[in-house]
Write a protein that binds this DNA or RNA. Structure first.
Lengths: 209, 209
DNA sequence: GCCAATCTGTATCGATTGGTACAGAATAGC
DNA sequence: GCTATTCTGTACCAATCGATACAGATTGGC
């Protein structure tokens, strides 16, 4: 592997890179986000990133390497919000805020619609087994985070002790996935928000209130 | 267009087709179902169908034509169940049965996982505008059917008159979408069924019971 | 038997795919 | 200035994509 493959460190000598690696990665992320891995051709990527293919390969190694970095950047950018929401006062507030944030983010016209991670479910068979498994874990992590927040709520007393945290987490994670699909299909923020409101109506019965 | 394009009618003369058009279409449906439109190459399709590409083009016109027929066959095969379920005694029974049937169908190892129609959301940009719009309508039709069933429930008295049928339908349609994504990710029937049970806990609050 | 019609299989088409060879340009160290 | 090193842009690679030309095979009608 060449010393520059994916290495963000500035080398001591040689012609400097003429583009901003993070900006280019952001552009690539948006292309993958809206078209998926297979749907995004190298031509789509290089034109969006403003560079030629040899520069892309020197900086990111391969199309799959670029995709992997784009996904991880997407997660890094959005997990800040995620953890902020999860530290709300009660589990119920955390879950509702998460879904409201998702409804807003999935439907904003400033970026592609839906969740970039959840949309990867269809293309696991086009990727290397390692990256496919990594994406599968990433998709499952939402439910795990929700479950941990619910268990914390039980500890802190704002959720009934008999609550099946796993089942409740799976339920709201399923809503999350459904919101992503609806958004990809063109649903408005109002429509998604209405679904969140409906989903929160289940909170009482589900947590034994 | 040649007289044989997509025409299932047996011509009066000429060498007869050496394969069963419906069987071949079923095989193609399974390939598209598991890999999506772009992910299914002609090689995948012809080898699964057991025919060479000229026979495919003579019988179905084009890859997109074959995909369109495969989707419509999928809908035709599954909508029988769908209508049966929708004619249950109460709206609640109809909705729950629909979701239970979906949970079972999405996770059965006998066929690809998840819903073939709902999985089309990511590939609208690879298809002709007409087929893309047709698939979008197909994806929206679940919510419309649920809404009609709820309105019938209000008429028949098993659903409270003040119920927001549109909102409740959108909620359960979102669960339906989420179940498809979870199944594609490998969720078991038990996991999906658990989510359905959780979702039905919202029925009372949502229908003002 | 013969012709018209239709399907099958091989072999291939041009376009596009992901990926790279190579020459020239730009930098740091000396 | 000179060399080593690294990036850029053109031009190109083999492989694969969806789709087809064509010759041979198989039928019904006459």
């Amino acid at each position: 592997m060449s010393p520059s493959d994916g290495d963000p460190a500035r080398p001591a000598r040689g012609r400097p890179r003429s583009f901003d690696r993070e900006v280019a990665l952001d552009q690539a992320m948006r292309v993958f986000w809206s078209k998926g891995y297979a749907g995004a051709s190298l031509g789509d990527l290089t034109s969006a990133m403003g560079i030629a293919s040899p520069s892309l390969y020197a900086a990111f190694g391969s199309k799959e390497g670029l995709y992997s970095e784009a996904i991880h950047r997407y997660v890094a950018v959005h997990e800040a919000d995620f953890w902020g929401v999860m530290s709300a006062a009660t589990a119920r507030e955390s879950v509702e805020s998460l879904l409201r944030k998702a409804a807003e983010a999935f439907s904003t016209p400033d970026s592609p619609q839906g969740c970039m991670v959840l949309q990867t479910a269809m293309e696991a068979h086009e990727l290397s087994p390692e990256l496919g498994a990594s994406l599968c874990d990433l998709r499952a992590s939402n439910a795990q985070t929700l479950e941990r927040r619910l268990l914390k709520g039980i500890e802190e007393g704002d959720v009934a002790p008999a609550t099946d945290a796993r089942a409740v987490a799976d339920f709201y994670a399923t809503i999350h996935k459904g919101l992503s699909v609806s958004a990809k299909g063109g649903a408005s923020r109002q429509e998604l928000d209405s679904v969140v409101t409906s989903a929160m109506a289940a909170w009482g019965p589900l947590t034994g209130g």
